[in-house]
Amino acid sequence: MDIILEGILKAFILLVTFDPEVLGITWFSLKVSGTATFISLFFGMSVGTVVALTQFPGRKFVVSLINTGMALPPVVVGLFVTIFLWRNGPLGFLEILYTPAAMILAQAIIATPIVTGISLAAMQQLPRKMRLQILALGATRLQMVRILIREARLPLLAAVMAGFGGVISEVGASIMVGGNIKGYTRVLTTATVMETSRGNFDIAIALGIILLLFAYAINLVLTTVQQRERPR
């Protein structure tokens, strides 16, 4: 019990004094996961929108593939990305294993199906006649897609949040492809694992609290979005 209380107290001190190490790790985590989410947003939203708005043979299969991808275990992604990026692996020439770039790559792979799946659902959730209404207002195809994305902006924000939430709290892939190198590839989750194993419960708890705050903020947005009604 002592360890926990003491840990929480020290964690609080670390947080309110803006401890440079804790702050650095937090900022780096945001950068890596933010960039990965941004990349996944580009692919996920494009694919999600196309699949939602078009009909083609094998569409059901693609949708089921996307939904399976949403539950892709991060360690599996980490394992495969590591194998591909090994010096002697197929992508070894890139020389990015144990770099932030590798972490971004792995996290983008994890986030893309999540963003794709939620974008797909967001676009499908719009009334089907909405497309006709937009065309009837004189829109070009491009204008229609832009308006649809605007209409689905809140569920799409949910996609962003879910993708971001998925990767910032992920540890397996980050530690495997990043290596948890101090000041270089150390993020909130990998640092938490290491500090716990080192017995530095105060730092671990401080990092944990930051992760919890992120999780709370993300869920707040998601809940707000989910409870919002669409216009008639």
């Binding site: 009334p127 006649k129 909405m130 006709l132 209404q133 065309l135 009837a136 207002l137 004189g138 070009t140 308006i147 605007r150 209409e151 902006r153 809140l154 669409r230 216009p231 008639r232």
Partner: peptide, 18 residues
Amino acid sequence: LEYRRKLAMVFQEPLLFD
């Protein structure tokens, strides 16, 4: 497109934008 821009359509559902 030119033709459609001379028309307007109202459906059973208002289909308003957010």
